[in-house]
Every structure is written in structure tokens, then in C-alpha cells.
Nucleic acid binder design. Structure first.
Lengths: 151, 151
DNA sequence: GAGGATTTGTAGCCTAGGCAAACTTTGACG
DNA sequence: CGTCAAAGTTTGCCTAGGCTACAAATCCTC
């Protein structure tokens, strides 16, 4: 037998394209980051700044948890933040936040167009926004545009 | 000050109904279990038995990981399994598996009806199936039935 | 029915992301 | 300008879910 046996394990490269479960696990790794970035952008837009205490309240976690997460985002170059000061997005962070927000909006509009109640749609949109391929998002866009847009 | 301060934290009872992020975190806790149960049911149906090695291959993880997960499912009363023997679902486990499978099928059909390519639909369905409320699933059902069902 | 390959299980490690408790910094206000 | 509440941080803990390496059991095959 040549080289290493590999067990039944699939290599990362192609497995994410091939195995849905692997793909879901990978999505989960980005999910939290995107939620933070999207929320930070939103807070800055609406209140002028993103503070630990507000992020914690929105996400339903403790401030300590937010501090830890922000440290990670800093390490990844997605935000900047000086101790005891509020948080800002880097350009890279802004890109991700805007994309996430756009997806979120698309999904929300789509669900509502599909006939789902507003509040339920909000919750479900949050749940699925990190797991949809560009192709599905495009299909949702098409669907929205075909709708008569009930006033 | 009265009683405990509570910080800005929201109590579990209502927060899952109120805060989408809390809801998503709760969904994640069940996600893995449902994937296992659904897969076990599928393997039993198709090959006669559910073996660790096959579960591992399908999920893209190591066998040791599967063993650990099965131990948890046993503790939760969702499967039965004797050491070195294959795995069976309890009634409770079967209920969850069937529900999961049904949701999965609904979502898959829906995405395809929406115009998403088969292989992409498979991947996305796996990603979102644990995050949709009954209301949204019902809306998807309605949409499928309205479709002319293109041959 | 013995031997070796395959499968399963065990032990120990790692990381992420929660938490509480204690500490530090900030900043508002008398 | 001193004090003190609110905000932020640090530390240390826990659990889940991955992994590797190794040990044990099972089961083909001759």
C-alpha cells in the first residue's frame, strides 16, 4: 500500500466541496465572527459606537465572553480595539460585515415573501444565514423580484 | 438593591423565544444529535445496520469521535449499542430521526423547486435543516405543492 | 481454529466558546 | 477633585467535539 493509509478520512481540500457535514462544521467556525462583525457595524451605524456591554446584551452572552471574542477578531485582523475603548472594524472586517448584512436582508425578505411571519422570519434568518451558498441566495433574490411586492 | 443583579443577561426561559442568537446556540446543541440519528436510521434502512466506521466516513470524522458521540446519545436514551456491536435507535431516537429526515426532504424539495441545482441543494439543506421553525417549513410545503412539479 | 486485517474502544490532548468572580479603568457628578 | 457606579478586563473553570496513538475485540480466510 502506497504512502499513508488515510483511514476513511477525507482530506480537507475537496471534502468541504463533497461532504455536507464537513461543510457545515466549517461554516460554524465563521458563524460567530460574522455575527459579531455584523452586529458591530449595526451598532456603529445606529448608536455611533460599538461597546462591549451592548454587544453582550444583543448576543445574550456575558461581557467576558465578548471580550474574549473581540480578542480573537483582533488577532484575525477584522477589528481594532484599544483596552477600555470601543470597537472598530478594519476594512476586511467591514467587507465581511456588509456581505453578512446583505445576505441577512435577502433571506429575511425572502422568508417574508414566502409568507412567513415577521418575527419568525427574523429568528430563522439568523439561524440559516451562514449556511446558504451563493446559488441559493441568488435563487432567493430572483424569487423576491418575481413577487408582486404586496403593499 | 433587590436580590441578584442579573447584569444584562436574559433568563433562558424567554430569551430563546426572544433572542435569535440564543436560539441559534440552542439549536447547535441538538444539531449533532439529529445528524447522527438521521444518519443511523438511513444506514439501517439501506444496509441493514449502522456501524461506527460507516458513520465516521459519512460525517467526515474519525471513528473515535463517533464512539464518543454514540456514548452521549446512549446517555440521552436515543440509541442502544453494545460494545463492538452495531447501533440501534430507541423509540425516542426514531421519532427524532424521522422528523429530521422529513424536514430534510422538505427543504431539499423546496430548494430544488426554487431552482437550486441538486448538489448545491443537498449541501445547503444539510446546513439549514436544524434552524427552521415549523412555520417556515409549512411555508415551504405550501410552495412545493403550488409548483407545477416540472417533469 | 490461528493469524492477521479490520473494526471498535480507550486515554489523553487541544481548541472554542460559554460561565462566575475578582480586579481595573473610566467617567459623571457632587 | 474625590468617590463610586458602570463598563471593561483577567483569570480560571467547564463542556463539547474534534484529533492521535494505542489497545482490544471481531471476523475473514486459509
Amino acid at each position: 500500500m502506497p504512502l499513508q493509509e488515510k483511514d476513511t478520512y477525507q482530506e480537507k481540500d475537496d471534502s468541504s466541496r463533497i461532504n455536507p457535514f464537513v461543510r457545515v462544521r466549517e461554516d460554524h467556525a465563521n458563524e460567530l465572527s460574522e455575527d459579531y462583525l455584523e452586529l458591530i457595524e449595526d451598532l456603529i451605524d445606529r448608536t455611533g459606537e460599538a461597546r462591549t456591554v451592548d454587544i453582550a446584551a444583543k448576543l445574550g452572552v456575558r461581557q467576558a465572553t465578548v471580550t474574549k471574542a473581540i480578542a480573537r477578531l483582533k488577532r484575525e485582523g477584522l477589528v481594532t480595539a484599544a483596552p477600555y475603548r470601543s470597537i472598530f472594524l478594519t476594512n476586511e472586517g467591514k467587507k465581511i460585515a456588509s456581505r453578512a448584512r446583505e445576505h441577512h436582508r435577502t433571506i429575511l425578505e425572502f422568508l417574508i415573501a414566502l409568507g412567513v411571519q415577521q418575527d419568525v422570519a427574523e429568528i430563522d434568518a439568523e439561524g440559516i444565514e451562514h449556511h446558504l451558498s451563493p446559488a441559493t441566495l441568488a435563487a432567493m433574490q430572483r424569487f423576491i423580484q418575481q413577487q408582486p411586492a404586496a403593499a
